[in-house]
Design a protein around this nucleic acid. Structure first.
Lengths: 191, 191
DNA sequence: GTCTATACCAAGATAGAC
DNA sequence: GTCTATCTTGGTATAGAC
């Protein structure tokens, strides 16, 4: 798959380089969000120069859009893989389990969560809204469930996103309330 | 209440001016988040100079902390006012209704939501985690409910926060899925 | 109590070499 | 395909006047 066996650091194929930068962008934006991350941070993470990152994607905004799209596609893929054809509403359980599994790859959920705060941005806002609606649509199509159940599913997901973004599990800090909350969010028994 | 009858624009009491700037900070941070808002934007909104804002609060970070604290206190006050002594778990319904009412003042929920994305910040992160735990604690104390129910309550709240931050209601854009979601989130019947 | 002026640094984007 | 150098802007914070 990898074009050059030895990652020679220079002269990589454009597609591979793009993937590499996109990976870095996901990680960086997960940490700092859109406004809180610099193109230079992404560049360093990817091991390339800052102007090159901008050159590749045109603007920081386009870079974020690409990174966000990538994590949403990952989400969509996992959902589709978790569902079983014809399983109906039972699929909601399967999809929920898939979501909980996604916590392991914190970046996906964190980039998503940051995206949800960009509603006020004239260009990013519409894209973020569309991506949420796309998720709702996919869930309902895979499970054939009511909007009410889809809402409850989403709600649990948003709480998970919040806890991951807050890094509550990593900083329970001997607080029993925090520990109990994290524990009971991790077991998706509501679905 | 207002010290000077004629808002003379200069020479206000320190406390009044502080409140005024804090109001502006809440509005500005609600729109742009912590990293996406400049102290100058806050200053303009408040009608004072940017250096004065910094002078009053020391740093942008301290300003955000103060603004965030203010919205969380507002939330706490509303919850306490909504609950009836000795009503037990029934209070969960009352608190939920109070939360939905808070949607009207979008800034509270939006600042909160932005705060939840700051978990990676070494100084803001701990403060944001603590404020979430404080909410959980208050809900449980007011209603005496289980962690599981508290979790479900929180989850619905996080979904509301997300929709408000995304401004989905304002941009339903003739999308039936979006409209249906917004509609069914607004009626807090789950509690 | 509040401003103007400004120092200082960071960030996005462009030009152009190799 | 990728870098260095740099332009330009904007943002936090300080100094000091009024």
């Amino acid at each position: 798959m990898a074009a050059a066996p030895t990652a020679k650091r220079t002269r990589m194929s454009a597609e591979d380089r793009r993937e590499q930068v996109l990976d870095a962008a996901v990680a960086a934006f997960a940490e700092g969000g859109y406004t809180g991350t610099t193109t230079d941070q992404v560049a360093r993470l990817a091991g390339v120069s800052q102007p090159y990152v901008v050159r590749m994607f045109g603007t920081k905004q386009a870079l974020f859009l690409a990174a966000h799209q990538r994590v949403m596609e990952r989400l969509s893929t996992e959902f589709a893989a978790a569902a079983e054809p014809g399983a109906g509403e039972e699929n909601l359980h399967l999809i929920a389990a898939a979501y909980v599994r996604l916590i392991a790859d914190r970046d996906v959920l964190r980039v998503m969560q940051h995206g949800f705060t960009l509603g006020a941005d004239p260009v990013l806002g519409p894209a973020m809204r569309a991506s949420l609606i796309a998720v709702v649509r996919q869930i309902r199509q895979l499970s054939g469930t009511s909007i009410e159940r889809a809402r409850d599913f989403l709600a649990q997901g948003m709480l998970i996103n919040t806890l991951v973004a807050l890094q509550l599990a990593e900083h329970e800090g001997d607080d029993p309330e925090a520990a109990a909350l994290v524990a009971c969010v991790l077991e998706p028994k509501g679905f």
